[in-house]
Simulated assay, not measured.
Amino acid sequence: MATGHTDPQRRERILDATLDLIAEEGVAGVSHRKIAGRAGVPLGSMTYHFSGMDELLREAFGRFVEHFVAVFDAHLSVPAGREEAREAVADLVHVLSEGSRRDLVLTQELYTLAARRPEYRELTHEWMRRSRVHLEKHFDPDTARQLDALIEGLTLHRALAQEPHGRALTLEAISRITETGRREG
Score class of each variant (00 low, 15 high):
L113W: 10
H138A: 05
D140N: 15
R117N: 13
R101W: 07
Y120T: 06
R101E: 14
V105M: 10
M46K: 02
V65R: 04
L43G: 04
R129D: 14
G37T: 00
G62A: 10
R158M: 11
E119R: 12
I174N: 08
L123D: 10
R63H: 08
D103E: 13
D7W: 00
A168I: 03
R182G: 08
R63G: 11
K34Y: 02
A144D: 03
V95K: 14
E172D: 13
A60S: 14
Q9Y: 09
T47R: 13
T124W: 00
E109F: 04
T107M: 09
G40F: 02
G44P: 09
L160Q: 11
L156C: 08
E84S: 06
G26C: 01
V30P: 00
G81L: 10
L15Q: 04
L15D: 00
V69Q: 11
V93C: 09
E98M: 05
R82L: 08
R129Q: 11
H157S: 04
A159Q: 06
R10D: 15
L57D: 03
E25I: 00
R117F: 09
V78D: 01
R11I: 01
G185I: 03
G99V: 03
S45F: 01
H5E: 15
E109P: 06
F61Y: 04
G153L: 14
L92A: 10
R33L: 07
P8I: 05
L135P: 05
E179W: 06
E172F: 10
H94K: 07
Y48F: 11
H5T: 08
R33M: 06
E163Q: 13
I151F: 08
M1I: 01
M128D: 12
G81N: 15
A23F: 01
T170Q: 04
D140Y: 10
T18H: 00
R132K: 13
E59L: 11
